[in-house]
Simulated assay, not measured.
Amino acid sequence: MLRVLIADDEPLARRALRRLLAPHEDVEIVGEAESVAQAMELVGSLRPALILLDIEFNGADGFDLLAAMADPPRVIFVTAYAEYAVDAFAVEAIDYLLKPVAQPRLDAALDRARRLLAPPPEAPATLELRAPGRLLRCAPGDILAIEAEGDFSRVHVADQPPLMILRNIGHFETVLPCPPFLRAGRSILVNCARVRSLDMRSRDEVKLTLVGKAEPITLGRAAAGRLKQALAT
């Protein structure tokens, strides 16, 4: 079962989330909180795997809750405020939903939560990467980074030209081991063991250099922040 805590100070919002969660038979709502203090207490006693978390409520915000916990559960933000999206992904939020939330949007967020919270599969010794007219077999550690390109993924392999694979980035996220692979943003998966340097070119542009690849990859501010945080731990 996916144990979920709802944290929102609006009773109508909590009721709406209960209704949206009802079709998911594998979801157990273990509690509801209407303040950061109450959410903190319930996380400690109930140990949910996932929080559906508002950002602004009762004089505090959801980021205060996450900052106060050494090992917080995974979180899906559910909020009326669009301006916190970058900050949300910097704290490794699974998703960021704007109220009012449509059923398909919550369903997609829960699907991603299930994938991320599932026990990690054993990494294969060799991966087969099939591109048009090309087949490459490599060890997972030889993959440097993967960039999302719609339904395709641009796979960067050490000392090889990039391959365009008809697999989305979520597929590789479930196959490759974490660590060392990190989903630094919606469109980038990075092998942290292969990071050579992060070069800040501007406030919103960072160049990522990887061992085994001559040309750097451009990262946005949020992805660079998550990667820096992971490399520092």
Rank of each mutant, 00 (worst) to 15 (best):
I146A: 10
I169F: 03
E10Q: 15
A118D: 03
S187K: 07
K207G: 00
V27W: 02
R114V: 01
R105V: 13
D142Q: 15
R137G: 03
Q160P: 01
P216L: 07
D107L: 00
R14M: 08
L117K: 03
A33K: 05
N168W: 06
A88C: 10
I29C: 02
R196F: 05
V27H: 04
M200N: 11
L116A: 06
S197Q: 13
A33N: 10
L227Y: 09
R18Y: 02
A158R: 11
A13W: 05
G31A: 03
R15E: 15
M69R: 10
S153Q: 06
E25A: 15
E122I: 11
E147R: 14
E173R: 03
M40Q: 15
L198C: 11
A224R: 11
R167D: 13
D199V: 15
G59N: 11
P100L: 04
A108Q: 14
P23K: 03
E128M: 12
A16G: 08
Q103E: 15
M164S: 13
R19S: 08
E122F: 00
R18Q: 14
D107V: 02
G212D: 04
A109T: 03
A148F: 05
G225C: 10
E215H: 06
K213M: 13
T79P: 08
H171D: 14
G59L: 12
V211G: 01
I55Y: 07
I188H: 09
G225A: 13
D142Y: 04
D9G: 12
P72V: 06
V175E: 12
D199H: 14
A222W: 04
L227V: 05
E205N: 09
A193M: 08
F57M: 15
L231M: 14
A145L: 15
A184E: 10
A158W: 03
R14F: 07
I29Y: 01
I6Y: 01
L227E: 06
P216M: 06
A13G: 06
A33C: 09
A80E: 07
F57Q: 06
L98M: 08
S153G: 08
A193D: 14
S153P: 04
E147I: 06
D204T: 13
R14P: 06
I76V: 14
P180T: 09
R226M: 10
R137K: 14
A232H: 08
G62M: 05
R18L: 13
E28A: 15
A7T: 14
A193G: 15
T233L: 11
L227D: 02
C178D: 07
A224W: 09
D204P: 01
D107P: 00
E83P: 01
L144N: 00
P11I: 09
I143N: 06
R19C: 02
R130Y: 01
R201S: 05
R115Y: 00
E92K: 11
E215Y: 00
A109Y: 04
K228W: 07
N58C: 12
P11F: 10
L219V: 09
A148H: 02
R201Y: 10
E122Q: 13
P140V: 05
P132C: 10
R18H: 13
A113R: 08
R226G: 02
K99W: 01
A145V: 05
E215F: 01
R47K: 15
